[in-house]
Design a protein around this nucleic acid. Sequence first.
RNA 1: GGCGGCGUGGCCGAGUGGUUAGGCAGGGGCCUGCAAAGCCCCGUACUCCGGUUCGAAUCCGGACGCCGCCUCCA
Length: 463
Amino acid sequence: MIRLFDSARGEICELRLRDPGRVSMYACGPTVYDLPHLGHGRYTLVWDVARRWFTFRGLDVRFVSNITDIDDNIINRALRDDTTETDIARTYEHQWWAAMDLIGVARPDDTPHATKFVAEMTELIASFLESGVGYLTSDGVYFDVSRVKDYGLLAGQPLESLRAGARVEANDEKRSPLDFALWKFAKPGEPSWPAPFGDGRPGWHTECVVMSLALLGDGFDLHVGGFDLKFPHHENERAQAVSQGRDFAQHWSHSGWVMVGSEKMSKSLGNFTSLTDLLEKTDARAYRLLVLRSHYRSPIEVTPATIADAERALLRLDTLARRFDLAALAGNALEVATDFTWTEETGKLCEKVGAYLDNDLDTPLAVAALFEAVSTANTAADKGEDARGKELALAVNALFGALGLQLLSSSHHMDDLSATLVAERDEARFTKNWAEADRLRDELVKLGWVVEDSASGTTIRKP
RNA sequence: GGCGGCGUGGCCGAGUGGUUAGGCAGGGGCCUGCAAAGCCCCGUACUCCGGUUCGAAUCCGGACGCCGCCUCCA
């Protein structure tokens, strides 16, 4: 049984499935108007891990995550860059997937694009106008939140108190500052789609409710995203669905944000680091390990220091992979080692790690248990229990693999010169010519290698 | 103002009332020709003030500090 904190209920509860054995899961994807930043990296990693874990548990997961390819931000960016909205969306969607591939986030099963669902959106909006839940103003169509009984469910407070805190609204045609745009009429030169109530473009909240219901159907299992989407975005998605008497997501989960110093990283604060930049100078696996080492609902600091810390921890795992000659498991692919054979000892490890992960995706405890198993494996091998060490190492590899973290035994290819030096050093050591052996080691170090000796000879690796 | 969260050893970061979190860094040792890697040992921490309890980092009350949402935001 998988348990997960539910933002609507405010407690950890069982993830109940509409169809036993199958998980339908939706994550709001990016608006493609800029490079993805570390916050995008965090939420995609968190839910990639969840998806992988569900899959490892034998569940058939259908994961849908959209691309918002029409939005005010895209229009503004196109104006700024003196190009078209289509060009901006295409450019940054490409950047998005490139970053996702680098960071090892598996592609969703479906990636609906908002512009491909406009017909469904206008149909929905028309029905809102008909029922009176939606209303026209001079600049678009708005949704009357007072028409939804339990509006504020996700925000955790009633409509009145939300309204009390709302900031002064520029648009005085809205009945309430909490009402949101379903549709925005196009200004001259802006991209627009035809609609009986006036040509224009859909509002963000309408895009996601339409796409999630279209692909996953009413009452799908799990809707996820970053905490900052909980209100108003997710609240508004839900409001639209329930105002039509439709079942929406049965379970809501939100992931914590990335902090910069003591502030949340966000587009509006302008304090973001692009994921693309990070991945250029860092092993992407370090970011995944950093994310895994904290709980998904807690804020994390991503700084050069915390990344370096994760990189050194990763080194310990790669050293294990090298010592036991572990095969690198599939990175971006969602493959699960279903044919893994557990021994009594590794079975217990799997049980322990699994219990942590089943309980609100407690990756920090799971990772701690795996690091303990690394020590156990090394100790076993040190004592000459090679088979036992190997079994443990294989299990650690399989379980990290289930979380999408690849252990690498050789991440760097040895060039001819280095290979020659290694061979010469083996010869020097064999003949106990220590001076020559040390000289050759110095040469290898100068070439950027870390030299390690063992009974079977010299091995080299990058630091 | 409303709602929610956080405050743990040098750093990062878990924590279900009592028994080792884990990682990184640091110190000592084993191993090694010397190293590296690995292994063993070492820190006795929980913002503050009360309270409950045989016993609290963990529960209750209060104080202080910090953060987030209520506006676009993962």
